[in-house]
């Protein structure tokens, strides 16, 4: 029996996960979401620049559709917070497949908050180069992006005409699925141009970011779906991240229960094997 349970067909485990996640989605329980200090730091930095003349935040979309469920809710929440506080937002992408996601985020929030393209926000699109693009932006923003995604001149749009270089932004937030936070933004933008940088990343990447958080090179971090849900709590909006906390909690709980059952079976089996080998040895001696 124990051996059977140890070698259970993995499709049963898939079924448990499916049932657990589906049940959590169908019958959601209200769960407490407490924003962590790293998430609050990003939120508070944006709050601190409201009221400042021409306050502008740069949002870099550095992720693809694979990370959309984790990072898109954060992008939407940050844009919403900026718009509600009359802070201008400039979007850009270091990943080509992020363009559609960025546009979707801007379109939905700008429509809901009644914000105008070119005056309150703009999207610059994707450009190649990554590191070298940041270096160009650090020296001459209008040179690096002379036109936005729609072909408007950045030197003429009210949202970007006051931006001379990367340092002109009041805050930069990178939403990254890969190594762009530490490999590009921290190394080249923060250390060279002394910008204030916040990050949002997938849960799997976030442990890599903690050294930069402690050193202050990254002033805050929204990590994974949980971080996105915390941000939604701060901006008082119940979005997909908040709704995702119930299925994610269920999945984590099932994984933990699986680990406990797996280990219990393993130890019971090991004890049996030992007993059998001891009684076998005694039998041989007698």
């Amino acid at each position: 029996m124990i051996q059977k349970l140890l070698n259970i067909d993995r499709r049963w485990i898939f079924l448990f996960i499916f049932v657990g996640v589906a049940a959590a989605m169908l019958f959601p329980l209200p769960l407490p979401i407490r924003p962590s200090s790293d998430v609050k730091n990003v939120y508070n930095t944006i709050e601190s620049i409201k009221g400042k003349p021409n306050a502008t935040v740069l949002l870099s979309f550095d992720y693809g559709p694979g990370s959309e469920p984790e990072l898109q809710p954060t992008a939407i929440s940050i844009i919403r917070q900026c718009f509600r506080n009359n802070i201008k937002v400039v979007g850009m992408a270091l990943w080509p497949d992020a363009v559609g996601l960025a546009q979707a985020a801007f379109d939905s929030v700008s429509r809901a908050e009644g914000k105008e393209y070119g005056k309150d926000w703009t999207f610059l699109g994707y450009k190649t180069g990554s590191v070298t693009l940041i270096l160009n932006m650090g020296e001459d923003f209008h040179g690096a992006f002379n036109v936005d995604y729609r072909g408007n001149k950045t030197s003429e749009m009210p949202v970007t005409q006051h931006i001379a270089k990367l340092g002109s932004f009041d805050y930069v937030v990178t939403l990254a699925a890969g190594k762009t936070i530490d490999g590009v933004w921290v190394t080249y933008a923060v250390d060279r141009y002394r910008i204030k940088l916040g990050g949002a990343t997938t849960a799997v990447t976030s442990p890599d970011m903690f050294p930069y958080l402690q050193s202050g090179q990254l002033n805050g971090l929204v990590s994974g779906l949980a971080g996105a849900a915390e941000y939604e709590t701060l901006v008082r909006t119940q979005g997909s991240a908040t709704r995702g906390m119930q299925p994610q909690s269920a999945a984590h709980l099932i994984i933990i229960i699986s680990i406990i059952i797996g280990n219990t079976m393993y130890f019971v089996q090991r004890r049996r094997d030992r007993r059998q080998s001891v009684s076998g040895n005694e039998g041989t001696r007698s």
Binding site: P65, G66, E68, G100, L101, I259
Partner: peptide, 21 residues
Amino acid sequence: FVAADASMFAILSFFIASAAY
């Protein structure tokens, strides 16, 4: 594209649970 790519990552949850057990 978005739906397929996000689904590919979502099925990781099933494999993680199986591997954990």
